[in-house]
Protein backbone atom coordinates (compact mmCIF):
# COMPACT_ATOMS: atom_id res chain seq x y z
CA UNK A 1 0.00 0.00 0.00
CA UNK A 2 1.37 3.43 -0.92
CA UNK A 3 2.21 5.65 2.00
CA UNK A 4 -0.26 8.38 2.91
CA UNK A 5 1.36 11.77 3.49
CA UNK A 6 -1.74 13.94 4.08
CA UNK A 7 -0.74 14.71 7.66
CA UNK A 8 2.60 16.38 6.82
CA UNK A 9 2.43 19.93 8.19
CA UNK A 10 -0.58 19.20 10.37
CA UNK A 11 -0.57 20.45 13.97
CA UNK A 12 -2.80 19.19 16.74
CA UNK A 13 -4.43 21.24 19.52
CA UNK A 14 -2.21 21.79 22.56
CA UNK A 15 -2.26 19.16 25.29
CA UNK A 16 -2.03 20.41 28.88
CA UNK A 17 -0.37 18.51 31.72
CA UNK A 18 -0.12 19.64 35.34
CA UNK A 19 3.05 18.38 36.99
CA UNK A 20 2.70 16.78 40.44
CA UNK A 21 5.39 15.94 42.96
CA UNK A 22 4.38 12.29 43.42
CA UNK A 23 4.40 11.69 39.66
CA UNK A 24 7.95 13.06 39.53
CA UNK A 25 8.88 10.68 42.36
CA UNK A 26 7.29 7.70 40.60
CA UNK A 27 9.14 8.42 37.35
CA UNK A 28 12.48 9.20 39.02
CA UNK A 29 12.35 6.00 41.08
CA UNK A 30 11.73 3.61 38.21
CA UNK A 31 14.75 4.89 36.25
CA UNK A 32 16.91 5.35 39.33
CA UNK A 33 17.34 9.14 39.33
CA UNK A 34 18.32 9.54 42.98
CA UNK A 35 19.20 13.23 43.32
CA UNK A 36 17.19 14.60 46.31
CA UNK A 37 16.06 17.56 44.15
CA UNK A 38 13.56 15.11 42.55
CA UNK A 39 12.01 14.18 45.93
CA UNK A 40 12.50 16.94 48.45
CA UNK A 41 11.24 20.52 48.01
CA UNK A 42 13.83 21.93 50.43
CA UNK A 43 16.72 20.26 48.60
CA UNK A 44 15.28 21.48 45.30
CA UNK A 45 14.94 25.09 46.53
CA UNK A 46 18.43 25.01 48.02
CA UNK A 47 19.70 24.05 44.56
CA UNK A 48 17.87 27.01 43.00
CA UNK A 49 14.70 25.33 41.70
CA UNK A 50 11.22 26.73 42.31
CA UNK A 51 9.99 23.37 43.65
CA UNK A 52 10.67 19.61 43.39
CA UNK A 53 12.19 19.30 39.92
CA UNK A 54 11.52 16.64 37.31
CA UNK A 55 14.39 14.72 35.70
CA UNK A 56 14.77 15.93 32.08
CA UNK A 57 13.41 12.59 30.78
CA UNK A 58 10.11 13.30 32.59
CA UNK A 59 9.30 14.87 29.21
CA UNK A 60 7.92 11.44 28.24
CA UNK A 61 5.23 11.88 30.90
CA UNK A 62 3.99 15.37 30.03
CA UNK A 63 4.11 14.74 26.27
CA UNK A 64 2.42 11.31 26.33
CA UNK A 65 -1.04 12.82 25.96
CA UNK A 66 0.16 14.98 23.07
CA UNK A 67 1.74 12.13 21.09
CA UNK A 68 -0.73 9.30 21.83
CA UNK A 69 -3.77 10.59 19.90
CA UNK A 70 -1.59 11.70 16.97
CA UNK A 71 -0.45 8.13 16.31
CA UNK A 72 -4.10 7.08 15.94
CA UNK A 73 -5.19 10.07 13.81
CA UNK A 74 -6.78 8.79 10.54
CA UNK A 75 -4.87 11.48 8.58
CA UNK A 76 -1.63 9.91 9.80
CA UNK A 77 -2.97 6.41 9.01
CA UNK A 78 -0.08 4.76 10.80
CA UNK A 79 -0.17 0.96 11.13
CA UNK A 80 0.36 0.85 14.87
CA UNK A 81 0.75 -2.94 15.00
CA UNK A 82 3.83 -2.76 12.73
CA UNK A 83 5.35 0.33 14.38
CA UNK A 84 8.62 0.59 16.24
CA UNK A 85 10.15 3.63 17.88
CA UNK A 86 13.11 4.42 15.63
CA UNK A 87 14.77 7.49 17.05
CA UNK A 88 14.23 10.20 19.59
CA UNK A 89 15.71 13.59 20.31
CA UNK A 90 15.03 15.91 23.23
CA UNK A 91 16.39 19.42 23.61
CA UNK A 92 15.69 20.93 27.02
CA UNK A 93 15.14 24.50 28.13
CA UNK A 94 13.68 25.75 31.43
CA UNK A 95 13.43 23.12 34.20
CA UNK A 96 10.04 21.55 34.94
CA UNK A 97 8.94 21.62 38.58
CA UNK A 98 5.97 20.37 40.59
CA UNK A 99 2.99 22.66 40.02
CA UNK A 100 3.97 23.66 36.48
CA UNK A 101 1.32 23.56 33.77
CA UNK A 102 2.96 22.25 30.60
CA UNK A 103 1.33 22.80 27.23
CA UNK A 104 2.54 20.63 24.34
CA UNK A 105 1.82 21.11 20.65
CA UNK A 106 2.55 18.37 18.12
CA UNK A 107 3.35 18.91 14.44
CA UNK A 108 3.88 16.27 11.75
CA UNK A 109 7.22 17.14 10.15
CA UNK A 110 7.74 14.31 7.65
CA UNK A 111 6.18 11.12 6.35
CA UNK A 112 8.12 9.13 3.77
CA UNK A 113 8.83 5.58 2.65
CA UNK A 114 12.30 4.15 2.24
CA UNK A 115 13.43 0.57 1.70
CA UNK A 116 10.02 -0.90 2.48
CA UNK A 117 9.58 1.09 5.67
CA UNK A 118 7.48 4.13 6.49
CA UNK A 119 9.10 6.93 8.49
CA UNK A 120 6.83 9.18 10.54
CA UNK A 121 8.53 12.18 12.11
CA UNK A 122 6.75 14.39 14.64
CA UNK A 123 7.91 17.40 16.61
CA UNK A 124 6.54 18.40 19.98
CA UNK A 125 7.11 21.76 21.61
CA UNK A 126 6.35 22.06 25.29
CA UNK A 127 6.07 25.37 27.14
CA UNK A 128 5.31 26.13 30.77
CA UNK A 129 2.69 28.49 32.22
CA UNK A 130 5.08 31.44 31.73
CA UNK A 131 5.56 30.67 28.06
CA UNK A 132 9.13 29.40 28.55
CA UNK A 133 10.17 26.53 26.29
CA UNK A 134 10.86 23.47 28.45
CA UNK A 135 11.50 20.87 25.74
CA UNK A 136 11.50 20.47 22.00
CA UNK A 137 11.36 16.86 20.86
CA UNK A 138 11.62 14.95 17.60
CA UNK A 139 9.90 11.55 17.53
CA UNK A 140 10.69 9.14 14.68
CA UNK A 141 8.46 6.11 14.32
CA UNK A 142 9.15 3.41 11.75
CA UNK A 143 6.48 1.15 10.27
CA UNK A 144 7.38 -2.08 8.49
CA UNK A 145 5.78 -3.10 5.19
CA UNK A 146 5.21 0.31 3.58
CA UNK A 147 5.73 1.06 -0.14
CA UNK A 148 6.71 4.36 -1.74
Amino acid sequence: MAIKTDAVGKSWPAHEYEVGREKIREYAQVIGFDNPVHFDAEAARAAGFRNVVAPPMFVVVYTAGAMGPVLFDPDVALNFAAMVHGAQEFEWGESVVSGDLISTTTTCKEIYAKAGKGFYVFETESVNQNGDLVCRATWTNIVRGVEE
Binding site: V53, V60, A87, Q88, E91, W92
Partner: peptide
Protein backbone atom coordinates in the same frame (compact mmCIF):
# COMPACT_ATOMS: atom_id res chain seq x y z
CA UNK B 1 12.21 5.16 26.41
CA UNK B 2 13.03 3.38 29.69
CA UNK B 3 16.41 2.42 28.24
CA UNK B 4 16.78 5.99 26.94
CA UNK B 5 16.14 7.06 30.55
CA UNK B 6 19.14 4.97 31.63
CA UNK B 7 21.27 6.59 28.90
CA UNK B 8 20.10 10.02 30.14
CA UNK B 9 21.02 9.07 33.70
CA UNK B 10 24.51 7.93 32.66
CA UNK B 11 25.08 11.23 30.81
CA UNK B 12 23.60 13.33 33.60
CA UNK B 13 25.55 11.54 36.34
CA UNK B 14 28.78 12.04 34.40
CA UNK B 15 28.02 15.77 34.18
CA UNK B 16 27.68 15.98 37.97
CA UNK B 17 24.05 14.98 38.51
CA UNK B 18 22.32 18.36 38.34
CA UNK B 19 19.27 17.90 36.06
CA UNK B 20 20.05 21.28 34.39
CA UNK B 21 23.32 19.81 33.09
CA UNK B 22 21.63 17.71 30.39
CA UNK B 23 20.82 20.00 27.45
CA UNK B 24 20.10 17.61 24.62
CA UNK B 25 19.88 13.86 24.07
CA UNK B 26 19.37 12.11 20.79
CA UNK B 27 19.23 8.33 20.35
CA UNK B 28 18.55 5.61 17.82
CA UNK B 29 16.65 2.54 19.00
Amino acid sequence: LYVMGLVAKAANDEAGGDPRALKRLSVQF
